[in-house]
Design a protein around this nucleic acid. Structure first.
Length: 289
DNA sequence: CACTTGACCTGTCCGC
DNA sequence: TGCGGACAGGTCAAGT
């Protein structure tokens, strides 16, 4: 599911909805989704208060008053949806179809708060997880050790972007931009969208890109991600935000899942190919090998 | 080391 | 309608 803009949208929503709430209970349906010992749960999760929700790359961190953090990765199909029983939506509300049915068969973890509101971790494919650990140990996770810089940070420059790519000079630009150790947070949707924006064929080898092309790609990554955050992210299939709402970026996508439609820039038919093992959408005229 | 492929899961869609 | 296979927003382990 969720790439940087979707995770950022969830983070912003949770910061409005769950800060200061006290956790009174938790339940989970399998240890893979919630790999935590009962002792840690009793000592550091139950009766804790939510202090802050943070994001790094595609990971979320819910910091608790006990000095522990729930580190969360939503992977492909994870959702975090908050439901307050006092404000459950009525029939006909845009969010009603999801909210009113939670929990459902994809619900992996339920966090309950002291006012009978709940945070549901839903994950159809069970790739995601929610790990309780000391806040100070989060940076020691293997993923956190290797993940690259945040592309939307002000201090992240086009020069740094190009330099980090050059570590992957002999692979395709699509594989390199999806590599989280190069740049954080880019997934399949924004890889295709930014490569189209920069007019670069995803199979091009990194070593063949010019400085101008690196700069264009840098600008496009930041442009598409900022636009998507503004639109509440992309709902390709499952994604919803912390209130159960879909994102609208797909209405603004130029190539992703638009095979058979025309390129908005030149009118050529968009095609779908496979690059780096992933479905890849391009305009074959704008993006030449 | 750099790079590619398959595995992890459930659900949906498409062709026969 | 049913069945088999390919595919889906991500990462990791194991292979070359």
């Amino acid at each position: 599911m969720p790439e940087l803009p979707e995770v950022e949208t969830v983070k912003r929503g949770l910061n409005k909805l769950i800060i200061g709430r006290k956790i009174t209970a938790v339940s989970s349906d399998n240890p893979k989704s919630f790999p935590n010992s009962p002792g840690d749960v009793d000592n550091f999760l139950i009766s804790s208060t939510v202090e802050l929700v943070r994001r790094r790359a595609k990971m979320l961190m819910i910091d608790l008053s006990t000095g522990y953090t729930l580190a969360i990765h939503l992977k492909m199909t994870g959702q975090l949806v908050f439901v307050d029983n006092k404000t459950r939506f009525g029939a006909g509300h845009p969010n009603d179809s999801l909210i009113s049915q939670l929990p459902d068969k994809s619900t992996r973890v339920i966090l309950s708060f002291d006012d009978d509101s709940h945070l549901y971790f839903n994950d159809q494919r069970k790739f995601g997880w929610m790990k309780l650990m000391p806040t100070l140990e989060v940076p020691n996770l293997p993923f956190m050790q290797k993940v690259g810089p945040e592309p939307l940070n002000d201090e992240f420059t086009a020069e740094q972007f190009a330099d980090r790519f050059k570590r992957r000079a002999r692979t395709s630009v699509k594989a390199a931009i999806l590599d989280q150790s190069v740049v954080a947070g880019v997934g399949n949707i924004y890889a295709d969208e930014s490569l189209w924006g920069a007019k670069i064929h995803p199979s091009r080898l990194v070593g063949s890109l010019s400085e101008v092309e690196f700069k264009d790609l840098y600008d496009q990554v930041r442009f598409v991600m900022n636009l998507s955050i503004e639109k509440g992210g992309s709902t390709n299939r499952n994604y919803v935000d912390a209130e159960g709402k879909k994102g609208s970026y797909m209405d603004f996508a130029n190539v992703f899942r638009r095979e058979g439609q025309v390129c908005p820039r030149c009118g050529t038919e968009i095609i779908k190919i496979k690059v780096a093992g992933r479905g890849t959408h391009i305009c074959p005229l704008c993006q030449k090998i």
